Computed example of a mutant assay.
Amino acid sequence: MPDILLVRQEAAPIAPADAEAARRVLFGTVDGLGEQHSKSWRRFINRLFRLEPGEVVEIKTHQARSGPFHRRHFALEQALFEAQERFEHFDQFLYWIKVGAGWVTWAAGPAGGVVPIPRSVSFAAADQEAFEDFHQRVVAFLRGPHAARYLWPHLKDRADGMMNQILEGFSE
């Protein structure tokens, strides 16, 4: 979920005509859904206009995830898992994909080294924007020089063809 930090930039007050024009756009083009959300939106914008120079506001956003996009991504992962030869357990395969795609948090390991901890892609942890980023990273990793050869070691130089065949089946 993207967080946005806003800061009031200048000490000069907002001219009434500028404030009115901004309100006209913000309340006329974008508005809360229903009376309660509309009131909350207006209160929030009005608070923004009253910020003091240097004052910071944090906005947390969440864009609902596209069901078809989500299902297509996980169907791709399932097809790869069923075709590959390295992993017996799907959860281990998913950890490998997340680490390969760099979808991790780096933390101190038990012996003091740095280890990757795979991040969640649950609906609560990754909205549509974050999930699209994850998907692009996964596809880039799968198309990279190592993934296919690791998943199908016996195919050697033909492993990339196997990966391409699966990915192209999902228009990737």
Rank of each mutant, 00 (worst) to 15 (best):
L155P: 01
Q92I: 13
F74K: 03
A147G: 08
A83K: 13
A124T: 02
H146I: 09
L94I: 06
H146P: 06
F87W: 09
A83M: 07
F134D: 08
L142S: 06
F134I: 13
A75K: 08
F74T: 03
A124S: 13
Q128M: 14
D133H: 15
Y95N: 10
S120N: 07
E77P: 01
S120G: 10
I117E: 00
K98V: 00
F141H: 12
F87L: 03
P153R: 12
G144L: 10
S120E: 05
R143K: 15
V114S: 11
V104W: 02
R149I: 02
R137Y: 09
L80D: 02
A126M: 10
E129T: 14
L94P: 10
G102E: 06
Q84H: 06
Q128W: 15
H146G: 10
H154C: 01
H154V: 01
F93A: 05
A148T: 12
A108F: 03
S120K: 12
D133W: 15
E77V: 11
G109S: 01
A83S: 08
H146V: 07
H146M: 08
A130H: 13
G112L: 07
A108V: 08
A126F: 10
G144H: 11
E129Y: 12
F87R: 07
V114D: 07
E85V: 08
A107G: 00
L94H: 06
E85G: 04
G109L: 02
A107I: 01
K98I: 03
F131Y: 13
P118W: 05
P118S: 04
A108L: 03
F87C: 10
R143P: 12
G102I: 02
V121G: 05
R149Q: 13
W106N: 00
F131K: 14
V104Y: 01
G109Y: 07
Q84W: 02
G112N: 05
S122C: 06
A107R: 02
F81M: 05
E82Q: 07
A75N: 06
V114E: 11
A126V: 09
V139M: 06
H89T: 11
S122M: 04
A101D: 01
A111N: 04
A130E: 15
L155M: 02
A124W: 13
L94D: 12
W103T: 00
D133F: 14
A147L: 12
T105N: 13
R149L: 14
S120P: 06
T105Q: 09
D133P: 09
V138T: 14
H135Q: 15
